[in-house]
């Protein structure tokens, strides 16, 4: 008898479960539909307003021209060579600058965060350095390092370094004193505390900064190219600007956005992997 009640209960729960799964699916179908609708509405009103002259095509272009421009770049290549080469050059500068800046930021953030004296002395300068619009340094790098890759990488490094540094520093300062005390009693020496306790505590701070700073690295590289270079998406924008080609500027922007979104996706994957101990990651 009891068994029967339990069986009934079970099938009831399965039914409820199926219903709730269906509801969730339905919800996402609607969301995706409206997202698509929104995109279509925006692009088509831009196109129409551009064609009837409410929006000046000369300055703001229209979607069909932008798409056409991208197709041309893909098929025939740009004035500076094939599109993929431009993407590759910019990406190389970005990734290099990102990696160098991130490693430098993490190392110095932890070193400074672990030492109260150094932290107190330098924290004021870090605040100042953070307040300076560092992008202006690009001009100096072009003068000092020339039109090649080095100047762009340097600018990307500067853009990334301070963000990552600030977060790593903060993460270290906020590491739980109880956990450090526990590790000490369990037998950890200073370097074990740094690498096995402080670094993992600061990891969520550091990873959060990597998210933002990849975008910064990209901005650094592109602005560097814009200021003076022989290749890259930044140069593509500069060239389009010189020719009053608004569609070209927008097209380059879209190419950049795709690169940035891909990078963000990869960093999120990395983050979820490294922080799988964290409660409810969405």
């Amino acid at each position: 008898m009891n068994d029967k009640i339990i069986m009934n209960r079970k099938s009831e729960i399965t039914k409820l479960e199926q219903a709730s799964i269906k509801k969730v699916k339905e919800h996402w179908r609607i969301v995706i539909f409206y997202r698509f609708m929104f995109l279509t509405a925006t692009l088509s009103s831009w196109e129409i307003l551009g064609r009837i002259g409410v929006i000046d095509q000369f300055f703001f272009s229209i979607p069909s021209k932008i798409i056409y421009q991208i197709c041309i770049w893909i098929i025939k290549g740009t004035s500076q060579g094939p599109l993929w080469l431009q993407v590759l050059v910019t990406l190389e500068e970005t990734v290099l600058g990102f990696l160098i800046g991130a490693v430098m930021g993490i190392v110095s953030g932890i070193a400074l965060g672990r030492n109260k004296m150094l932290a107190d002395i330098f924290s004021i300068y870090i605040k100042i350095a953070n307040a300076i619009p560092r992008i202006v340094l690009g001009s100096i790098f072009i003068i000092a390092l020339g039109l090649g890759m080095a100047s762009k990488v340097a600018l990307a490094v500067v853009m990334v370094f301070f963000v990552v540094f600030g977060n790593a520093f903060q993460g270290v300062r906020e590491a739980d004193v109880n956990l450090i005390a526990n590790a000490k009693v369990l037998g950890a020496n200073d370097s074990q505390i740094t690498f096995k306790v402080v670094l993992p505590s600061a990891l969520s701070w550091i990873l959060a900064s990597l998210h933002i700073s990849f975008g910064f690295a990209l901005v650094g590289a592109v602005v560097g190219e814009f200021l003076g270079s022989k290749q890259g998406i930044g140069l593509l924008i500069a060239t389009a600007q010189g020719a009053f080609n608004a569609a070209g500027v927008f097209a380059a922007m879209i190419v950049l956005a795709v690169v940035a979104l891909l990078a963000d996706y990869l960093i999120t994957r990395l983050e979820n992997r490294l922080l799988k101990w964290r409660p409810n990651i969405q």
Partner: peptide, 11 residues
């Protein structure tokens, strides 16, 4: 030393 507050490593 077993601490008063939670001190296991969350990661």
């Amino acid at each position: 030393y077993v601490f008063q507050t939670d001190a296991v490593f969350p990661w």
